[in-house]
Deep mutational scan, measured.
Amino acid sequence: MQFKLIINGKTLKGEITLEAVDAAEAEKKFKQYANDNGIDGEWTYDDATKTFTVTE
């Protein structure tokens, strides 16, 4: 399945997509990506659109 991450950071904004088996795997990958890029914020997930959002 394809999942999307919307980044609303203080210095980094944008979207990325990835393939994952389920939402838990996608969340783990997205949070690792955010951590690697210094993004720390409030996370939400919309199951209907398979979209994660992180807002700093």
Results as ranks from 00 to 15, higher is better:
Lys29Ser: 06
Asp36Lys: 15
Glu42Gln: 12
Thr44Pro: 00
Glu42Trp: 09
Ile16Asn: 03
Ala26Gln: 00
Asn35Gly: 10
Ile16Met: 14
Ala24Gly: 15
Thr53Phe: 15
Ala23Trp: 13
Lys50Pro: 01
Tyr33Val: 13
Asp47Glu: 04
Ile16Lys: 09
Gly41Asp: 01
Glu27Trp: 12
Lys4Ser: 07
Tyr45Ala: 01
Asp40Tyr: 12
Gly38Ala: 12
Asp22Trp: 03
Asn8Pro: 03
Ala20Thr: 09
Lys29Cys: 04
Ile16Gly: 02
Gly38Pro: 02
Ile16Gln: 08
Trp43Lys: 00
Ala20Trp: 03
Gln2Trp: 13
Met1Arg: 06
Ile7Val: 07
Ile6Phe: 13
Lys13Met: 12
Ala48Thr: 14
Asp40Met: 14
Ile7Glu: 01
Thr53Val: 08
Asp40Gly: 14
Leu12Gln: 09
Gln2Tyr: 14
Thr53Glu: 11
Ala23Ile: 12
Glu15Trp: 12
Lys10Cys: 06
Gly9Glu: 03
Thr55Ser: 13
Lys4Phe: 06
Val21Tyr: 13
Glu42Thr: 13
Tyr33Pro: 00
Ile39Ala: 03
Met1Pro: 07
Phe3Asp: 00
Thr55Pro: 01
Lys4Thr: 04
Asn37Ser: 09
Phe3Ile: 02
Gln2Glu: 04
Phe3Lys: 00
Tyr45Thr: 01
Glu25Arg: 03
Lys4Val: 06
Gly9Lys: 05
Thr53Ala: 13
Asp46Val: 13
Val21Glu: 14
Lys13Cys: 04
Asn8Ile: 10
Ile39Pro: 02
Lys29Asn: 05
Ile7Trp: 14
Thr49Ser: 12
Lys31Arg: 09
Ala26Cys: 03
Ala24Phe: 10
Gln32Glu: 05
Tyr45Trp: 11
Ile39Cys: 03
Asn35Ser: 06
Leu18Val: 15
Thr55Gln: 14
Glu15Pro: 06
Ile6Glu: 06
Ile39Phe: 10
Ile16Thr: 15
Ala48Glu: 09
Tyr33Lys: 03
Gly41Ser: 01
Gly9Ser: 12
Lys13Tyr: 04
Glu42Val: 14
Ala34Lys: 01
Tyr33His: 05
Glu27Asp: 13
Thr17Cys: 03
Lys4Met: 09
Ala34Gly: 08
Glu56Ala: 14
Thr51Glu: 08
Glu42Gly: 11
Lys28Tyr: 15
Glu42Met: 07
Ile6Asn: 06
Ile16Ser: 06
Asn37Pro: 01
Ala20Gln: 03
Phe52Tyr: 13
Ile6Arg: 12
Leu18His: 10
Lys4Tyr: 07
Glu25His: 12
Asp40Ala: 15
Ala23Val: 13
Asp22Pro: 01
Gln32Met: 12
Leu5Glu: 00
Ile6Cys: 04
Thr44Ser: 10
Asn37Met: 15
Glu27Ser: 12
Ile6Thr: 07
Ile39Lys: 01
Thr11Glu: 04
Lys13Gln: 09
Asn35Gln: 08
Ile7Asn: 01
Phe52Glu: 00
Val54Ser: 01
Lys28Ala: 10
Met1Asn: 15
Glu27Leu: 15
Ala20Glu: 13
Asp22Phe: 06
Ala20Gly: 06
Ile16Pro: 01
Ala34His: 01
Ala26Leu: 01
Ile16Leu: 13
Met1Phe: 11
Leu18Arg: 06
Gly38His: 06
Leu5Lys: 00
Thr51Lys: 04
Asn35Ile: 13
Val54Lys: 01
Gly41Tyr: 02
Thr44Lys: 12
Ile7His: 04
Lys31Gly: 03
Thr49Asn: 11
Thr11Asp: 04
Lys10His: 15
Lys29Gly: 10
Asp36Pro: 02
Thr49Leu: 12
Thr49His: 10
Gly9Met: 12
Ala20Leu: 05
Leu12Cys: 03
Ala48Met: 09
Tyr33Ser: 02
Gly41Arg: 01
Thr55Ala: 09
Asn35Pro: 01
Leu18Asn: 04
Val21Gln: 14
Glu19Met: 12
Ile39Asn: 02
Asp36Met: 14
Ile7Ala: 02
Thr44Cys: 06
Gly38Tyr: 10
Gly41Trp: 10
Ala26His: 00
Gln32Val: 12
Thr44Val: 15
Asn37Tyr: 10
Leu18Tyr: 11
Ile39Arg: 01
Glu15Ser: 06
Gly9Arg: 06
Gln32Gly: 12
Lys4Asn: 07
Ala24His: 10
Ile6Gly: 02
Thr53Trp: 10
Asp40Thr: 05
Phe30Met: 07
Lys50Asn: 11
Gly9Pro: 08
Gly9Trp: 08
Met1Glu: 15
Thr55Cys: 04
Lys28Val: 15
Glu19Thr: 15
Lys4Glu: 03
Ile16Cys: 04
Asp36Leu: 08
Glu56Ile: 09
Asn35Trp: 13
Asp46Ile: 14
Ala48Gln: 08
Asp46Ser: 09
Lys13Ala: 14
Lys28Asn: 08
Lys29His: 11
Ala24Ile: 06
Asn35Leu: 14
Glu19Phe: 13
Gly38Arg: 11
Lys10Arg: 09
Glu19Arg: 03
Lys50Trp: 11
Ile6Val: 15
Thr49Ile: 10
Trp43Val: 02
Glu56His: 12
Ile6Pro: 00
Leu12Tyr: 13
Thr44Gln: 12
Asp46Gly: 02
Ile16Tyr: 15
Trp43Met: 05
Gln32Cys: 03
Leu18Phe: 13
Met1Val: 11
Lys31Val: 15
Glu15Asp: 11
Phe52Asp: 00
Lys28Met: 13
Glu15Ala: 13
Glu42Lys: 11
Lys31Met: 08
Asn35His: 11
Gln32Trp: 04
Lys4Leu: 11
Phe3Met: 02
Gly38Trp: 12
Asp47Lys: 12
Asn37Arg: 12
Gly14Arg: 14
Gly14Phe: 10
Ile7Ser: 02
Ala24Cys: 11
Ala26Arg: 00
Thr55Met: 04
Phe3Gln: 00
Ala23Asn: 14
Gly9Asn: 15
Thr55Arg: 14
Asp46Thr: 07
Thr53Leu: 13
Asp36Val: 15
Lys4Ile: 05
Asn8Trp: 05
Phe3Ser: 00
Ile7Met: 10
Asp40Gln: 10
Thr53Gln: 06
Glu27Met: 13
Thr17Lys: 07
Glu19Ile: 04
